[in-house]
Design a protein around this nucleic acid. Structure first.
Length: 291
DNA sequence: CTCCAGGGATCAG
DNA sequence: CTGATCCATGGA
């Protein structure tokens, strides 16, 4: 990777293991739009960022050198050697080799914990297009606007006055009461989100599970996508299906056992393995109709 | 019409 | 303790 800094533009060349489409479409984040051929706009970290990628050349704008070094370098996990990780997790594993070749440009983002927690509470028993819609309406209603169309994700203070009916009004459905409970517990400091970063994964998970509407899957996603716990292997319907089909000959396996299998097989890299498999499964519709 | 979605709470046994 | 059922909503 090489970086060059211009006036409010950062140019990345010789990018390794970086494909913006795969990074955004692998289900880890929800606030992005395709704005043109090879172009995306993301809303994250209280900023709007346009990204254009042509092969190994990537432009980020608007982005100062300082913003890049302070924010986006970590957000895109650019300090991590993905080539090495892909080599490790696919060693002696033709299945993972295929998944890694299929979407070798995936990176695990380091997202903001509060946004990630709220977003994945909304995600439960839901589909990605509708999740994006709800989050967009939530942001528009309670976040600071950055233009006429859209807004930044609201912070905790902005959601404290929001009640159950308000969440229902933007289409959260039965998840409204979970959002209320989440905000309530954070407001009362029953849970200190940012302290979880320096906590062992299992202890941090226990904290997150105190929130109603946060179960093993949502907790794992928050830990993996925003709290640096790269050993988590969130098991959703897709990951359950693809893991069963490719590693257990299509047998029905309890989620608990799938998690243990992943922890044993990929250890501290389980989260990376999960993302490659999720993207592969969803793109190819692997396991749908028990094929 | 029915079924399903990056699940989890609650109830029944 | 495990397994079944319910939950809001919109798209297929």
């Amino acid at each position: 990777m090489k970086y060059a800094f211009y006036d409010n533009i950062v140019k990345i060349t010789e990018a390794d293991s970086f494909n913006i489409q795969e990074i955004l479409e692998c289900g880890q984040c929800f606030r992005f739009n395709k704005t043109g051929e090879n172009k995306y706009r993301i809303i994250a970290l209280n900023k709007v960022l346009d990204i254009e990628q042509n092969g190994e050349t990537i432009f980020l704008s608007p982005c100062t050198e300082e913003e890049f070094k302070e924010l986006w370098f970590n957000y895109f996990d650019l300090g991590t050697d993905y080539a090495e990780i892909k080599k490790i997790i696919s060693k002696d594993d033709p299945i993972m080799q295929k998944a890694v070749e299929y979407a070798g440009g995936i990176r695990l983002l380091n997202q903001e914990p509060f946004e990630t927690l709220i977003s994945f509470i909304i995600s439960q028993n839901n589909n990605i297009p509708r999740i994006k819609g709800i989050i967009s309406r939530l942001s528009k209603a309670y976040g600071n606007a950055y233009n006429d169309e859209d807004s930044f994700f609201p912070d905790l203070a902005a959601l404290i006055p929001v009640c159950n009916d308000d969440y229902m009004a933007i289409g959260t459905g039965f998840r409204a009461k979970y959002l209320c409970d989440c905000v309530e517990k954070l407001k009362n400091n029953e849970i200190d989100l940012h302290s979880l970063y320096n906590m062992p994964a299992e202890a941090a998970k226990k904290e997150l599970l105190k929130i109603k509407g946060v179960g093993p899957k949502v907790a794992d996603c928050v830990l993996l996508f925003s709290l640096g716990k790269r050993d988590m292997y969130p098991v959703d319907v897709w990951v359950k299906r693809v893991t069963e089909l490719l590693y257990f000959d299509g047998k029905d396996i309890p989620k608990e056992e799938i998690s243990r299998f992943a922890a044993e097989k990929w250890g501290k890299y389980a989260g990376f393995a999960q993302q490659y498999l999720f993207y592969y499964a969803r793109s190819e519709k692997i396991g749908v109709d028990r094929v």
